[in-house]
Design a protein around this nucleic acid. Structure first.
Lengths: 210, 210
DNA sequence: CAGTTGTTTCAGTATGGACAGAAATATAAG
DNA sequence: CTTATATTTCTGTCCATACTGAAACAACTG
């Protein structure tokens, strides 16, 4: 540890630029989060759950940590707290940004990025769903479209087979359309519908012809 | 190939038991399905999709094959058609039965099980969702319950942290309750709601307080 | 009961993805 | 420009899981 020729109080009257000596920065760098036992199991289970749903463990754990922390923390802190490699943290953070589940913030006098998870659980869920839709659902949908077209044209494919593909496609398209419409509603209405549950069915015209 | 002392037509007048000579059975055994090109890509993509969603490739492929076939086929046929090991097929079939996505049927004069996928796409989707709920969602839910309790009791856990866990739990419980209610509705009403999409929101009391 | 056919279990192998650590690159400060 | 610091890319290792093929097991037939 070396302390350069910086001294507190010599910032020559600048109004906005705030500097810290390396000693302060170093002290800041050392702050590892200590996790309580329940917090640890939350993070562990979150990671476990993630890996069952096609999100890798580190990504899910980091997300859980940021979510629990509720305040901006640095990549390094994350790495030390969870004991995972700095590079892994870096990649995972980038992925989480890709899912729009975390954001970066700046802290005065610190060059490092500080990361924070979006706090609203509902919003979180929506972004995860939207992410999976974009990455997996939509590509499959368009692939299926192609296949159905090909199946109908191909005379080696039985009519029944082609029909089954087509109805699968139709079902998926309907589900997607339902999702898009629901997604477009205001959060207020969305949570209203959620809270309402099956009681909504009572509002349907009694002789439901669809 | 050896042909035992069985001859056509010597079934001694039994009404219901129908026998086939081994020659016939052997001929039956050889029938491998030939898949058209669109069918192949359907199966391949289905497998790909499965593996992205935590279902292993073989299981998903076999399911796709049975779904396309639309008629009962044997484990052996599946193995030969998809070129995967017989044992793998056996295990995968068992898993598919666990998900209630396929059923077994018997064919007269054939000891082997014949498998067929449920045909209704909507029903299929519902069973998949229910399966994942049972296997992954509910366990997580109860684990979370324990953690929230522990977090509230534990004084090393910050109030904010405990609250965040609690609200996550609450959201998941609400989602589950919504699902259960929707699931209990009749298929008719369900598809009515699906087709209706966001127009359902118009039926809500205008000043929606929830 | 012996022989045949079908199914499951088991143990070893292979493959894909996660991960660590090092090296390379970028950015800022003096 | 040099040095310090932050981040990303890259490469090899490790691990989990899927998968195969063989062997054990079970069920049925004559």
């Amino acid at each position: 540890m070396n302390f350069p020729a910086f001294r507190h109080g010599n910032n020559s009257g600048l109004d906005f630029a705030v500097h810290f000596c390396n000693f302060c920065l170093n002290r800041k760098k050392k702050s590892i989060m200590t996790l309580s036992e329940p917090e640890q199991s939350f993070i562990l289970h979150w990671g476990e759950m993630g890996s069952r749903w096609g999100v890798n463990r580190s990504v899910a754990q980091i997300h859980a940590l940021l979510y629990l922390a509720g305040k901006p923390i640095t990549a390094e802190e994350i790495a030390e707290t969870l004991s995972i490699a700095r590079s892994n943290v870096s990649n995972s953070l980038r992925e989480l940004q890709g899912w729009r589940l975390i954001e970066t913030t700046s802290v005065l006098g610190d060059r490092r990025d500080h990361f924070i998870a979006i706090a609203d659980g509902m919003e979180m869920a929506k972004r995860i769903v939207e992410g999976r839709r974009q990455r997996e659902f939509l590509p499959t949908l368009s692939a299926l479209e192609g296949m159905v077209k090909a199946a109908k044209a191909d005379k080696a494919t039985s009519r029944e087979s082609a029909n089954r593909m087509a109805s699968t496609l139709a079902l998926m398209e309907q589900a997607d359309s339902w999702y898009r419409e629901m997604n477009a509603l205001s959060p207020k209405v969305q949570s209203g519908l959620l809270r309402m549950g099956a009681r909504i069915a009572k509002l349907l015209p009694t002789s439901d012809k669809g």
